[in-house]
Amino acid sequence: MNLNKILKAIQEEGTDKVDNRRGLFKSFGSKVMMASLPLAAGSMFRTAKAQTASELIESLNLVLLWEQFGHAFYTKVLNEGPVFANASARAAFDLILSQKQQHIEYLSWVIHNGGGVANPAPVFDITGGKGSGTGPFAESLVDYRKMLSLAQTIEDLTIRVQKGTLTRLMVNDVFLSAVLGIHTVSGRYASKVRQMRWEAGAATVRPWVTGDRSDTENSYLQSYYHGEAVTVQSGIDMIGLNAQALVYDNVTEAFDEPMAKERAAEILDSFIQP
């Protein structure tokens, strides 16, 4: 079966025969698929909305950008930031920084092998001042607790931005696996930073996001949590579901919500020097 026949068959299948399309895909084997077909061909599988190769690479670059942002943040606060609570706190940040460095290298490699170009990191301004260094988070460089608040928000946002790319990446096993394996590790970082805040006296903070609360006094940070308090999942109202003790707090904590790339770009805009 040649490529054109496959593509024609796929197009004729329509959107209601998912399994047959999957069968075609599987009969080729995903590795062969990756090697021999352009990304655009792969994009016809599984999701109804076609993703071009450049859109897939754009999604990967978005994930890369947020790893670069996190990397810049941890580098800055470790080198020029506030006094840490103790050596363990620094060690935790050292570990996250080193792992983000490896995520950056890994994602760049995946993008390159996928036929794309990994975007170089922009110049970040972690104060949120577009390069002025005097933005609304400038105190993060002198105040340990405020620094942790920003760290928490960066980690929670990273999860949401990654999650927003996932269904677009479904068409490509390699890309999906690359982001998903980093995705759950991002959940680990967010949890850790939140535990560090709890240990530093922020008594209402938990390792998971309750409602759409940032548990900070910073109105910018708080605004970034909009959309996290979802109590209806897959059309099912979770509150009190099946007579279980499911309430607003534990229901909203139980699910991390995706963020649209447009909103993610708006937020990141103030952290990048134009």
Binding site: T167, H183, G187, Q195, D256
Partner: peptide
């Protein structure tokens, strides 16, 4: 990568980072 439905896949993905928070 085995899901046919993007919606089902995304629904489980919303849980998996919370499991990441748990394990940390």
């Amino acid at each position: 990568n085995r899901f046919a439905s993007a919606q089902y896949f995304e629904q489980i993905a919303k849980m998996t980072t919370v499991d990441g928070r748990h394990i940390a």
